[in-house]
Simulated scan of single mutants.
Amino acid sequence: MRKRPLILVTNDDGITAPGIRTLISVMNEIGDVVVVAPDSPQSGMGHAVTIDDTLYCKKITIDKGPQEEYQSSGTPADCVKLAVSEILGRRPDLCVSGINHGSNSSINVIYSGTMSAAVEAGVEGIPAIGFSLLDYSWNADFEPLKEYIEKITRNVLENGLPDGVVLNVNFPKSTTFEGIKVCRQARANWVEEFDKRTNPQGKVYYWLTGEFTNMDKGEDTDEWALAHNYISLVPVQFDLTAHYFIQKLNNWNL
């Protein structure tokens, strides 16, 4: 009998978030599941790791299904590190992160705790996928995503991923989809503004606000796909070297 794959599940919205509970239910159909996720929301943490504070990790039971579940006081990247080094006992066959409440397309991949957990798994040599839904509501409908998540996951387990590559999958807010579109990351950014306020004690504080601006008009991008009701699938590499510029730098008078 074929051995079921060991799947590590994590996220950045916290272990009780509906998104991760949905992801766990899908992974239970595919393999043996171990969950290591933050005990509270960690959105926007990027690839932060805990180096100057204590880390806690406690075994818990939320619902039936996973072989084991652990909640951690750490970041999403911490959760993957703890899972690999202290909890699992062997390297998992796959790591899935999400389902994030909100999109992680385009430049958002840089800030995303969801994708940073997937990237951390990739750094460890583990095939990894980050899943996100363009709906920030806690009560978002994740049911229509399930069959596509299973299809993508089974493809990764069957075909593997290149070293240094993880997948970033984003779903538009919809109950039906045009299909899955393999894309590149759109060139876009946030134009930030800070709402300056004063508290009752007279101390100034700020709330970060801003507007997402897509400068990319290409029809092969994740933003185009989401706008046209496609599921975007972007292969993400975490080697940040601008290889094309190396030779030009070598020609500088250094």
Rank of each mutant, 00 (worst) to 15 (best):
T54G: 12
Q71P: 01
A128S: 15
V80D: 05
G102T: 03
C95Y: 00
G65L: 05
A77S: 15
D63C: 05
A117F: 09
R154K: 15
L94T: 01
E120V: 09
G44N: 11
N108L: 14
V119M: 14
F142R: 03
D78I: 02
T153Y: 11
E69I: 12
G46L: 09
S85E: 15
K58C: 08
P127I: 05
D135R: 01
A121S: 13
V49T: 15
P76L: 08
D52T: 04
G98K: 00
A140Y: 04
E124I: 00
V96R: 04
Y148K: 09
H47F: 12
A128D: 04
K151Q: 14
Y111L: 12
N108H: 10
Y56C: 03
G98S: 05
G122F: 10
Y148H: 15
V96H: 06
A83T: 01
S137I: 00
H47E: 10
G98C: 05
P76M: 07
K81M: 12
I152Y: 08
G130D: 02
K64V: 11
P76A: 09
W138Y: 12
S43D: 05
S85C: 04
V119H: 03
A117G: 08
S97W: 01
P92E: 09
I99H: 11
V80A: 10
D141Y: 07
D135T: 02
D135M: 01
E124M: 14
G130S: 14
E143R: 14
E124Y: 15
T61Y: 10
A77V: 14
F131N: 04
I107N: 08
Q71T: 06
S73T: 15
E86A: 13
I110Y: 13
A128I: 03
S72T: 13
S43Y: 03
P92G: 09
S106F: 02
E69A: 11
N104P: 00
C79A: 07
T54I: 07
I110V: 14
V96S: 05
L134G: 02
T114D: 02
T50Y: 06
E147R: 15
S132Y: 00
G89Q: 06
N108P: 02
G65P: 04
Q67H: 04
I110K: 12
